[in-house]
Each structure stands twice: as structure tokens, then as C-alpha cells.
């Protein structure tokens, strides 16, 4: 079977972000970027399916600026066979990404599409579900276990209060949760080899998709700062403060 994996270039998860002085957006100049952590888990799962002989080909895809090719090369170094870059400098919302990915699904006819459950920049948690809707495929979101079984896939999902397992007919869309796997690191020889793997570049126009959104970003602000607290010296002092100062006990 063929597996399609979507990856996103985002700010590195360890970076403490700054809001621009004019409140127009978050300042991303000279900030370290990386593959979204949930996308790494998605790539890892696809590569493991290949290693188990379940998948025959893994195709990585991204939507974003030219620099996002770095993240595709990372996916190739981790074990993806080829990559598709849909290049645009626009701010592309989840719906437009889902429309672009739907076109790729249409063209590539994968049996399984794996995405991360959310990107750590926009924190939307939408693209996988939207892709499932647009392709009219079933979805297994927030997956902590994926088991392909003939023409079905059993997906164990992390839900509020516990775990739920659903059976989906293939092809299907799966989004990864943190506990699905532990992504590997790319080895140097694989990084070198990845430079020779095929990478197609396309544009949204090639797919006839309009990326403009009806949602506009009016303003971005820093959240209210918490007032600096105090250190207490003992349990007694802590209980006293909570009772008499904070009045929460």
C-alpha cells in the first residue's frame, strides 16, 4: 500500500516566541524552525509501516515557502521515498491546506494518509479532519495505535477520559497523537542519500486551489503576564498564605 504523510515547517517547539511590536503577528525572523513534532510522529509511523512490509511507498508532502523543503528532506532522510512540495509564501489556513492535500490524494491514490493531530504554531487541530471530509474518507484522529488489518485499519484514539478504538475502511485518514511512537533521528548517511531522492515542486495554482481565506487576522497580542509570585519557606507558611492571602482554601 501507498502511504502519504503531510508535514509542516513550524517554529522549533523550544523557542519562546515574541509578538511583533505592531501586534500584526508573531515575529518569526531569525527564529529556529523545524518539523512540527506531531508530523515527525506521522513520518515515523509511515516508515515503520514500510519496515513491517505493510507499506510499499511513503510519499511526504508539504505546503509552504521554499524553505519548507528542508522539512521534506528531513522526511526523506527518515525513510520517505519521495516528496511533493506545494510552494507558496501566503499564510495558508487549514481549509486551503486540506483542499490542496485532497488534490494530492486524488492524484496519488494513497491507501493511508497520516498527519499530525495539530501544528504547534496555529494549534488548530483541523487539517486531517477537513481532508477526510473533502476526500469523503473515514478519519482516525488522535491515534495512539494504528493496526492495518486487510482492507481495514484499527485506530486506537486518545479521547477525554481514556481510549477508544475504531475500525475504518481503507483508504483512511489518520492523525497522530504524542503516544503513537518515538520518532527516530536522521543518520548522517541517510541525510546525504535524501538529497538525491525525488522532490517535485508544485504551486497551489497547479492544483487550481485558491488559498485565500475568509478569516482575517486582525491582531496578535501577548497574553496577560502573571504577577511575580513569592517563595515561601515552609508548609505552614504555604497553608497560611493560601488560607488568608489567596483565600483559596
Amino acid at each position: 500500500m501507498k502511504v502519504l504523510v503531510a508535514v509542516k515547517r513550524v517554529i522549533d517547539y523550544n523557542v519562546k516566541i515574541r509578538v511583533k511590536a505592531d501586534n500584526s503577528d508573531v515575529d518569526l525572523t531569525n527564529v529556529k524552525m523545524a518539523m512540527n513534532p506531531f508530523c515527525e510522529i506521522a513520518v515515523e509511523e509511515a516508515v515503520r509501516l514500510k519496515e513491517k512490509g505493510v507499506a510499499t511507498e511513503v510519499v511526504a508532502v508539504t505546503v509552504g515557502p521554499k524553505a519548507a523543503q528542508e522539512q521534506l528532506r528531513t522526511a526523506l532522510a527518515l525513510g520517505a521515498d519521495r516528496a511533493i512540495h506545494i510552494e507558496t509564501d501566503e499564510r495558508v489556513e487549514s481549509l486551503a491546506v486540506a483542499k490542496l492535500l485532497a488534490k494530492v490524494v486524488d492524484e496519488e491514490q494513497p491507501d493511508l494518509v497520516i498527519l499530525g493531530k495539530q501544528a504547534i504554531d496555529t494549534d488548530n487541530n483541523q487539517t486531517g479532519q477537513m481532508l477526510a471530509a473533502l476526500t469523503n474518507l473515514p478519519q482516525g484522529t488522535f491515534a495512539s495505535e494504528v493496526a492495518v488489518d486487510g482492507d481495514k485499519v484499527n485506530v486506537t484514539r486518545e479521547i477525554d477520559g481514556g481510549l477508544q478504538t475504531v475500525a475504518l475502511s481503507l483508504p483512511a485518514i489518520v492523525t497522530t497523537d504524542l503516544r503513537l511512537n518515538e520518532p527516530r533521528y536522521a543518520k548522517l548517511p541517510d541525510i546525504m542519500k535524501a538529497k538525491k531522492k525525488p522532490l517535485d515542486t508544485k504551486t497551489p495554482a497547479d492544483y487550481g486551489v485558491e488559498v485565500a481565506s475568509k478569516v482575517s487576522l486582525l491582531k496578535v497580542e501577548s497574553p496577560a503576564e502573571r504577577k511575580g509570585g513569592v517563595k515561601v519557606a515552609s508548609v505552614d507558611e504555604l497553608i497560611d498564605k493560601l488560607k488568608n492571602e489567596a483565600k483559596v482554601l
Binding site: 481549509l95 477537513m130 479521547i159
Partner: peptide, 23 residues
């Protein structure tokens, strides 16, 4: 923004060709 809301609403939004606002 429970796991059910997050699972279902983006599907509705895409089927209606509109964006979704999360959280």
C-alpha cells in the same frame, strides 16, 4: 474543544466549505 468537538467540527466546516476557529 473536547476530543469530540475537535474530531467532528472541522469535518462539518470542510463539508460546508468554511474555515473553523479552534479553542
Amino acid at each position: 474543544a473536547s476530543t469530540t468537538g475537535k474530531n467532528v467540527l472541522p469535518r462539518l466546516a470542510a463539508l460546508k466549505d468554511v474555515s473553523q476557529l479552534s479553542d
